Amino acid sequence: MTKLTVHKIGPGASVQDLGRRGWLSQGLSRGGAADRLALLEGAALLEQSPDLAALELSAMGGSFTVDAPTRIALTGAPMRASLDGEPLRWSASHLVKPGQTLALGPATSGVWSYLSVGGGIDTAPILGSRAAHLALGLGPKLETGTELPMGKDKGGPVEQILEVSDRFKGGDIRILPSTHTALFAREDLERFTETTFTRDQRGNRQGVRLKHDGAPFATRDQLGLVSEVIVPGDIQMTGEGTPYILLPECQTTGGYPRIGSVLPVDLPKAAQAAPGAKLRFAFVDRDAALAAHQSEDAQLTALKKAVRPLVRDPAKMRDLLSYQLISGVTAGRPETGDTQ
């Protein structure tokens, strides 16, 4: 089996797929990639299943080698990427050969970056998923010298690229009312949608804290709320009235009031907001949410259609001779020296 060797790795890196469903009642949240759209982008670039596992990297990135020619895709928060010192395009697929060093990081914007490989990271599944759950200690710990097995790659093109929207700098987030929204005073709901929040330094795969100027947000009789099911995208207000956006490794139940829940289509933008990024929220109704919704199958189909060849500058290609630049046959009479 081929393997990806870790030579350097930053904190918070882990193996992730789309997570494990069906365990919420047992106290295990879905987990999986913080930016699920980035996994779909990697699958589109490599023409493979989105269920395959990839490396999720945070801020610092890492360096890697392979022991066989390996197709890779780089998606999510853009990082400075290079192969043996030569820059690589982000949101694109490339070929890494044995003996070459892939270096990633630091991130130039956003939080979560992804390294997908042809065939996927093939670690042993736990409860039906290869996704690490850092809060519970599930999955391999990544450190210098870790060797990650890769599945069999069915093959496909490389040097492909996707033009993706910039979801890495914060912005406007649409939310649906939750069970507790009506418990907030009307003036507090209006103030919430008029407030520009700043993504705090405190945050991880469980959730991110938001800062704001002004009074805290609280509901009536919130100390009497019963703990109930919560899911990624819910916006909880802590006892001090500070909002937290819950992410894949959030707890499965909670008693803090939830002012709303982020639309799934906007959750990648919320998750990718780096410390200091500005976020604003707007309530939408169910019809608007359904109109904006796209299943992951539909998103993947659209991404596959958007993939195009990556045009490279021949002057900057050190491996130019390894490419087939001209192909074809000639037709006509054999050369006889007769020009008539």
Rank of each mutant, 00 (worst) to 15 (best):
T2C: 06
L4D: 04
V6W: 09
V6L: 06
H7M: 10
K8F: 06
L18H: 04
W23T: 00
G31K: 01
G31H: 02
G31C: 03
L37P: 00
L40C: 12
A44C: 03
L46R: 05
Q48A: 14
A53S: 08
L55F: 05
M60G: 03
M60Y: 10
T65H: 09
L74C: 00
T75E: 00
G76P: 00
P78V: 00
R80S: 11
D84Q: 10
G85A: 12
W90G: 14
A92D: 10
V96P: 01
L102I: 02
L104F: 06
L104Q: 06
G105K: 01
S109E: 15
S109C: 13
S113D: 01
S116Y: 07
G120N: 07
T123S: 09
G128K: 05
P140H: 09
K141L: 08
T144F: 03
T144L: 05
T146F: 10
T146P: 02
E147D: 14
K152F: 10
D153W: 11
D153F: 10
V158A: 12
I161T: 04
V164I: 07
A182F: 08
A182N: 09
F184Q: 09
A185Q: 12
L189Q: 15
T193D: 04
F197N: 02
T198Q: 11
R205K: 03
Q206L: 14
V208A: 15
K211Q: 11
D213M: 07
A218T: 11
R220I: 04
R220G: 14
G233W: 14
D234N: 15
Q236N: 09
T238V: 04
P248M: 07
C250W: 03
T253L: 09
G254T: 02
R258E: 02
V262C: 09
V262M: 13
V262W: 15
V265P: 00
Q272M: 08
F281L: 05
A282N: 06
A282M: 11
D287M: 09
D287F: 11
L290I: 03
H293V: 00
H293Y: 15
D297Q: 13
A302N: 07
L303S: 03
A306Q: 15
I326R: 02
V329C: 05
A331H: 09
Q340H: 12
